[in-house]
């Protein structure tokens, strides 16, 4: 496992190779940090799911030559920000398939896949995707709620 952790005041950096289940390493670290900040159990779970989908998105679609995903965990007083970066070919977030909740047909193949970004948007408070020919960065923020304190 080629993982480098660097602690720097309010930032943690993690590099994971694009190998099966490595998204769990990113999700587990996110869980550890969120738990230490007293996020609620439900919020921690939401963060884990969003992190898993962000990593899988990079694994599956980036075609990154270095086959690594770089993750920043930015710790603030009342929120956590995650930046998931790959150095792949990029994509157009505007062109992602959009579905209306609960109104889609059960059977078309597209329905089974392509949910990752929608799950991320649903579970996080703020999501920003920057993508170009040098790669993609998904930034996502989870704010700590009062219930989680």
């Amino acid at each position: 496992m080629s993982v480098a952790n660097t602690f720097s005041n309010d930032q943690v950096l993690l590099t994971i190779p694009m190998l099966p289940d490595m998204e769990l390493a990113a999700a587990n670290l996110a869980s550890f940090i969120a738990e230490s900040m007293s996020f609620s159990d439900e919020q921690i779970e939401e963060i884990q799911y969003a992190m898993i989908e962000s990593c899988i998105n990079a694994f599956e679609h980036s075609r990154s030559p270095d086959q690594n995903v770089f993750i920043e965990y930015i710790i603030r007083a009342d929120e956590l920000e995650f930046k998931i970066t790959d150095q792949g070919v990029g994509f157009s977030p505007e062109n992602r398939p959009v579905r209306q909740n609960g109104q889609q047909d059960l059977y078309p193949e597209m329905r089974k896949r392509g949910w990752g970004l929608e799950i991320i948007h649903a579970l996080m408070d703020k999501v920003d995707i920057r993508s170009g020919e040098n790669g993609t960065t998904i930034s996502m923020v989870k704010k700590k709620t009062n219930e989680g304190s």
Binding site: E23, L24, A27, E45, Q48, Y49, I52, E53, I56, K112, R113, W115, G116, I119
Partner: peptide, 9 residues
């Protein structure tokens, strides 16, 4: 505890 979107598919 955890499911990814591929598992759900």
């Amino acid at each position: 505890a955890l499911i990814n979107s591929i598992g759900i598919s």
